[in-house]
Each structure stands twice: as structure tokens, then as C-alpha cells.
């Protein structure tokens, strides 16, 4: 029997397959909506973090409504002849629903190295209070 390795076979093909498997991949969850969001809380604040690379602070529009925080902006497209385009471009918007009261006047936002951090302080009244039960 003659094994005919035609053009489909070339040396190193299977090695390459295995190499590709171990190469760094786009992270899990990174293919979700742009920009990715992290939401966390501690005793005093809620934190909303987002990766918005390439955006200046004044290009990111943050809106705090009664029940939600809206992050909106537009990523510009570079001019030129593209060989590869993986970075998301164009308008984006993400809405974070706030089901808890926050201190609206003390909300702060910072943007460093393309990571946006919004700190939403919890309302004084929203902190859990202990109710002591007196024994009758």
C-alpha cells in the first residue's frame, strides 16, 4: 500500500496543531460585550471597573440615572490599510443596573492605563443595621 501524502500533508503539521493549543488564547469571557465589566463591593462602596483601552477620560460618557449606571463612548478607527483587525471599534454602551441606593453626590470615576474605575459609595441608610431585640 502506498501512502500518498499530498499537499495537505506537510511536515510539522501536527506539531503546529499542538503548538497552537498551548499558545495564549483570548481570555475566557473576553469575547463578551465590549467593554468587559467587573462589579464588586466592600462594606462602604460598590466598584465598577471596565477595560476601555485607548479612551481618554473626556471621551467616556458616564451617566448615572435613578436605577442604572451607563458607560458609553466611541472608539475611533485608525486610518490605513488593515492587515489584521481584532480590536473592537465603534460605539459602545454598557448599562449596570443599580438595585441599591448609592450616594449620588460622592460617585467618583478614574481612568488609568485604560482601566476605568467607578466608585459608588453606599448610602448611609443602606448599610445593614442590627436591631436588638429586648427580652420582654
Amino acid at each position: 500500500m502506498v501512502l500518498d501524502f499530498n499537499t495537505i500533508y506537510y511536515p510539522g503539521r501536527f506539531e503546529r496543531l499542538i503548538e497552537d493549543f498551548f499558545k495564549p488564547q483570548p481570555g475566557e469571557g473576553r469575547r463578551m460585550a465590549f467593554p468587559p465589566l467587573n462589579v464588586s463591593e466592600d462594606e462602604a462602596n460598590y466598584y465598577v471597573r471596565s477595560e476601555v483601552p485607548g479612551m481618554a477620560m473626556d471621551a467616556v460618557e458616564l451617566t448615572l440615572t435613578e436605577k442604572s449606571l451607563v458607560i458609553r463612548g466611541e472608539r475611533p478607527t485608525e486610518q490605513g490599510k488593515y492587515y489584521r483587525q481584532e480590536r473592537p471599534a465603534g460605539f459602545f454602551q454598557r448599562v449596570v443596573a443599580l438595585n441599591v441606593p448609592v450616594d449620588r453626590d460622592k460617585v467618583r470615576a478614574t481612568l488609568t492605563d485604560g482601566v476605568l474605575t467607578v466608585v459608588l459609595p453606599k448610602c448611609e441608610g443602606a448599610a445593614p443595621k442590627k436591631i436588638s431585640i429586648d427580652v420582654a
Binding site: Q25, G27, G80, R84
Partner: peptide, 25 residues
């Protein structure tokens, strides 16, 4: 975890440009 950053490669009159999204670095 090792992550491959989103990359744009494009050509203009004065050469090639590579853009990589590496937020937080």
C-alpha cells in the same frame, strides 16, 4: 493567565503600525 491581546496591524505611507490593547499594564 496568559492572554493574547487584541491587535490591529495596518500599513500607512510611512510604514507599518501595530496597535495592541493592553489595559492595566
Amino acid at each position: 493567565p496568559r492572554v493574547s491581546p487584541a491587535t490591529d496591524i495596518l500599513e500607512r505611507e510611512d510604514g507599518f503600525y501595530v496597535y495592541m490593547d493592553i489595559p492595566g499594564v
